[in-house]
Design a protein around this nucleic acid. Structure first.
Length: 478
RNA sequence: GCCUCCUUAGCUCAGCCGGUUAGAGCGCCGGACUGUUAAUCCGUAGGUCCUAGGUUCAAGUCCUAGAGGGGGCGCCA
């Protein structure tokens, strides 16, 4: 009953004179005659031509923006200029009406802020359907990349009993009644009465579990949702986001950087190859958006030029110490243009410093390595200088940190000393320490923020516009 | 959490030094036209000027508080 041809398939492969059935949603209905039909399979609308003079007027009235219709008709060469083919309708059926008086999406340009308020309807726009198709392509490319290399896709838990993942504030998971919490004799909340018999949270990272798996399967990755209860209000943070975390045994920091750079380039290349039409649309959307900005804030490259440039150039690799030297001697630092002037080695780099390195000094993606150990996590391998760790951050233009990773500390004594230094409760982490106790080996991994990758590739400036239903402080709509 | 800007019609916005009946474009609706491409042309309707206080003869406009949103910063991916 619902046999139909998708618009993408029809446009790619048609025979003039064939009778086809298409279904989709009306974008515009021009001149009582031309329906621009979209079914989401592709950006392009299919033009349906109706013979309005011989059509029921009541039916014609129901063909409005947003209505779902079925059209049966003959594939003919278009007499108009905007498209190669069109469907000469023999039969049009309105499957679902859409009252134009109250339907929020009008056949006109809407602001991204307005569309964010109607996130349940925004996939029906060109911009968001393109973003979500690209998002899909990126997800599939990530799996393909790792699969081709023989990695095992690990599903790390979403509810975690570990509260020492160290990557940020956590959302608590509980079934305890909030109005009458069970208490222990000492007056503390009695989590023994909770669903899992202990305190649990939503995961902030699958890394520790991925490490366990890597020390058995050699090469693994996770790709799942992660949750941070940080009160972050920026265009590149979400409370719920998706993260890719590979973990590789018998690998050092250089292997790690090669893997990350290879992954990013593969994904970007796949989007260029498979999402050409969506990219072209997103590029023109971005260039329209940039026309609103002052000249000096506009990007010198178009979206596709930027992506191609990433593919064609090696990412710039340098140490934190080298970066500090560059920043210290930079013009903005000498002229006092930085809000946080670079004075001494050891300071954490601010967004403005990262942006200077990426956008001004090198003009390409940058990988910074060997950060001071004082500003990095406990599990990163300490260098021989006992001052820095084998960490790496990949910085992208416009996004900042897109990847954060490290070679892991595989030496049990060093790791335990670091954990004590940083007040990580050893007794709760025995399962993790077992990896170092039983057959430990050099290994490395990183976390890639999926939405930040989607942001970079689509050119969308706000991360809330690259995930269907964004979660951020004060907002969990839909 | 901090700093900053914004909130006027369905949407995007204008509204000058506080002054009398709050405007435009697009959309919707009605009509005309009928090979259009966000069609075009004509016309109608559509407003708790975010909310609550305050100043003033007079507040969309000034002040205070609150709510919602944008941008930046911090935390990070």
């Amino acid at each position: 009953m619902f046999s139909r041809v998708k618009i993408k398939e029809l446009l790619a492969n048609y025979t003039l004179g064939d009778t086809v059935t298409v279904m989709g949603w009306v974008r515009t209905f021009r001149n009582n005659q031309f329906i621009a039909l979209n079914d989401g399979s592709v950006l392009t609308n299919l033009q349906i031509v109706v013979d309005f003079e011989n059509m029921d007027a009541e039916l014609l009235k129901k063909i409005t923006t947003g209505a779902a219709i079925k059209a049966v008709g003959e594939v003919i060469a278009s007499q108009g200029k905007g498209q190669a083919i069109e469907i000469k309708a023999k039969e049009v059926e309105v499957l679902g009406v859409c009252d134009p008086e109250v339907y929020p999406l009008q056949p006109k340009k809407h602001s991204l802020e307005f569309l964010r308020e109607i996130a349940h309807l925004r996939p029906r726009t060109n911009t968001f359907s393109a973003v979500f198709r690209v998002r899909h392509q990126l997800a599939m490319s990530i799996h393909q990349f790792f699969h081709n290399k023989g990695f095992v896709y690990m599903h790390s838990p979403i509810i975690t009993g570990s509260d020492a993942e160290g990557a940020g504030e956590m959302f608590r998971v509980t079934t305890l009644p909030l109005d009458k919490l069970p208490k222990t004799e000492e007056g503390q909340i009695d989590f023994k009465k909770d669903f899992f018999g202990k305190s649990t949270n939503l995961t902030v990272s699958g890394q520790l579990e991925a490490e366990l798996a890597a020390l058995a399967l050699s090469e693994v990755y996770t790709f799942g949702p992660t949750f941070r209860a940080e009160n972050s209000n920026t265009s590149r943070h979400l409370a719920e986001f998706w993260m890719i975390e590979p973990e590789v045994a018998f690998a050092d920091l250089n292997d790690n950087m090669d893997l990350a750079e290879g992954l990013l380039k593969y994904c970007i290349g796949q989007v260029i190859e498979h999402c050409a039409e969506d990219l072209e649309f997103l590029e023109s959307r971005l260039s329209d958006e940039e026309k609103q900005k002052p000249q000096n804030e506009r990007s010198e490259m178009s979206l596709r030029e930027k992506l191609q440039f990433c593919l064609n150039n090696d990412f710039q690799r340098l140490t934190y110490t080298e970066a500090i030297d560059i920043l210290k001697n930079s013009t903005p630092n000498k002229k006092g243009k930085f809000n946080y002037p670079i004075e001494a080695w050891g300071a954490d780099l601010q967004s403005e410093h990262e942006r200077y390195l990426v956008e001004k000094h090198f003009g390409k993606p940058v990988i910074l390595t060997d950060y001071p150990k004082a500003i990095k996590a406990f599990y990163m391998r300490v260098n021989d200088d006992n001052n820095t760790v084998r960490a790496m951050d990949i910085l992208f233009p416009g996004i900042g940190e897109i990847v954060g990773g490290s070679q892991r500390e595989e030496r049990l004594d060093v790791l335990m000393a670091r954990m004590e230094e940083m007040h990580i409760p050893l007794e709760e982490m025995q399962w993790f320490l077992d990896t170092r106790k039983f057959g430990t080996c050099p290994h490395a991994g990183f976390g890639l923020g999926f939405e930040r990758l989607v942001q970079f590739v689509t050119g969308m400036s706000n991360i809330r516009d690259v995930i269907p239903f964004p979660r951020f402080p004060g907002s969990a709509e839909f």
